[in-house]
């Protein structure tokens, strides 16, 4: 088939995706759903600007076809707010720490962090860096981003100091 119809939930809204089979999830989200918080950086899986969660797992939306995810749930960084409609914890921590400058990488950083924050994994700063190494930021120098993620993990009790203390 050259056209595909799928049902995809985006940030809690169930949508029908009727599109050419070759359409990437990234293009569908940006051009058809208007989810402009999802960015196109490289189209090769390297930069992380296009990252979204599919059923809670961070993926490259540039390397997934919309046709491939019939019945699945997509969360973009805009879907990480608190249930009451305010900022979510990661979003608030990024704001508090000044972890976004131009903002191009921010959506991808947030959803990637959301995957491991959601899994309740115990991560020290090194592991946070390790988990985020596939998300490129050209502005911040990463420090503030790691600080923000670290704040959230510590708050929820899933981050513990490494043997040598916090660096």
């Amino acid at each position: 088939m050259t056209d595909a119809t799928s049902r995809i939930t985006v940030n809690g809204r169930e949508l029908e995706c009727r599109a050419a089979a070759h359409l990437s999830l990234l293009r569908w989200l940006r051009d058809h759903v208007g989810a402009l918080e999802v960015k196109y950086g490289c189209g090769e899986g390297v930069c992380g600007a296009c990252a979204v969660l599919i059923d809670g797992q961070a993926v490259n939306s540039c390397l997934v076809l919309a046709a491939q995810i019939d019945g699945r749930a997509v969360t973009t960084s805009a879907g990480l707010g608190s249930p009451s409609g305010g900022l979510g914890r990661l979003q608030q921590a990024f704001l508090d720490r000044g972890a976004a400058q131009c903002g191009f990488c921010t959506g991808g950083m947030l959803v990637t962090a959301a995957e491991f924050a959601g899994a309740g994994e115990a991560l020290d700063r090194r592991s946070i860096r390790d988990a985020l190494h596939g998300n490129l930021c050209r502005c911040t120098g990463y420090q503030a981003i790691v600080d923000a993620v670290d704040d959230v993990l510590r708050d929820q009790g899933s981050s513990s100091p490494p043997a040598g203390g916090w660096t």
Partner: peptide
């Protein structure tokens, strides 16, 4: 192998 997103898929 690659990054988290590559390994997820």
């Amino acid at each position: 192998v690659g990054n988290l997103r590559v390994r997820n898929r």
